[in-house]
Design a protein around this nucleic acid. Structure first.
Lengths: 242, 242
DNA sequence: CTTCTATACTGGTATAGACCACTGAACCAC
DNA sequence: GTGGTTCAGTGGTCTATACCAGTATAGAAG
């Protein structure tokens, strides 16, 4: 099972092994995992080495340790999803709604000022503009205007954004993983254009969201302005004291 | 410095000691802290014990470890403040504005349905209702309606909420620390009452926030509905992938 | 001067052993 | 049955030691 001559440390190999047992469902939440002494005998390693693996997994939230009782597989956290970074598609699915999209604009443009600042680029840099009407159960919910910039961004012009989500295309084809986003959320009255596209009344309120999204290396690759129908959408957030 | 007979573990005492050095500013971000071997000699403890203290502080983000170089005080994170739990007062101060409050209602009531569910109480339970007009630089920004419930909540009726923030009173006098909050943020048109109090035009948009706040033991103690002037306030949030 | 090398640091990993505090069950006395 | 004790097993703490891997520097070699 564990290779003492492997370049990776033993405790790390053990962590991966335990992680796999949990991910595969072989060990379910609430199950007791082998004790430190059992693991150290079974794998012929020191108790402290086994302990390091268990402790780190406990810190990561996968295990729960109880003095005098044992170490158990932790219950999966419910909390998240409120402060987790997702796109419209995943957001709607989490709400139990069928997401959809109608592409309105998809073209190479020179960036407007706000997008330029958000994406930290010069005025000459060409970016991709993607405007989509977002649907839930076939009904218009939001108007999303995305400004995208990264090496080779032009290739996006040939993608199908009506049947695939932006984030899934970016991660699968372009190896860009959204890692962090900062949003500003405000209220406003809808514009005439929004009124027509979202099929709402004149002077109806909308929730406006301006989001800058950063990739796994901390580089901003997306600046999106959205207008959500106020009667169909609320933004959920979780705050912590720490 | 460290007491080996103290009920608290040595590594824990050492952690607190190091934490204090950092909090007091004696050690500044980027400074190198004593090496594991130095600490073990200085305090006559095992290197592994010193190591545990340093490792845990590194996990918490206070220290940064570099193999071959040493252990350093970490740069304070900028990120937070966006997803950190604060009340109106602290929020405004963070935006560089002078906060204020005008109490409109402060009374003991039977809870409305939404407050009942949020606070997980029965219809007979009396709660304190606190309605405040919130100001920034003397100008109305938001109308906050707070429903409060905890043992001895009636005492709040005698507090001065115009010169002290709710959260500061709760933590200083009632030992209630806001630890976590869940919010739903939506857009809407202002009501007639809000229009008058906030001094905005008829049909002006407002940002509505419904917040449930939990104390350090995970018990909900506050349910607040707020209406913010859309022209003066945007909500900021940070999202992470993990 | 540059380049290599030895050396003395740093944190990272791993061992073996010891004692503590807590839990739960088995057992015994009443 | 009730209440206490004993005991084995668990994680928590701590020691002492060893070697590995990465970093910086001083000094030797070119």
């Amino acid at each position: 099972m564990l290779d003492k001559n492997h370049p990776l440390p033993i405790y790390f190999q053990l962590k991966e092994l335990l992680r796999e047992k949990i991910a595969s469902g072989e060990w379910k939440p609430g199950d007791m995992v082998p004790s430190e002494r059992e693991l150290s005998e079974q794998f012929h390693i020191s108790r402290m080495t086994a302990r390091q693996a268990l402790s780190e997994l406990a810190t990561e939230g996968l295990l729960r340790r109880e003095q005098g009782r044992g170490t158990f597989v932790a219950e999966p956290k419910i909390e998240h999803g409120l402060t987790r970074l997702t796109g419209f598609t995943e957001d709607m699915k989490a709400r139990g709604l069928r997401p959809g999209a109608r592409v309105i604009r998809l073209e190479l443009i020179t960036p407007p000022l706000l997008a330029m600042q958000a994406l930290q680029i010069s005025p000459e840099t060409k970016i991709v503009l993607l405007e989509r009407l977002r649907l839930a159960e076939g009904e218009p919910i939001a108007l999303e205007t995305s400004h995208l910039h990264f090496p080779g961004v032009e290739a996006l012009l040939n993608e199908d954004f009506e049947n695939h989500s932006l984030y899934s295309i970016l991660s699968e084809k372009y190896q860009i993983t959204p890692a962090r986003a900062v949003q500003k959320i405000g209220a406003d009255l809808c514009s005439q254009r929004e009124q027509a596209l979202l099929n709402i009344g004149e002077g109806a309120p909308v929730l406006r969201n301006k989001r800058i999204t950063y990739d796994q290396w901390g580089r901003p690759f997306e600046y999106t302005e959205s207008a959500y129908r106020a009667d169909r959408y609320v933004f959920q957030a979780e705050l912590n004291a720490s």
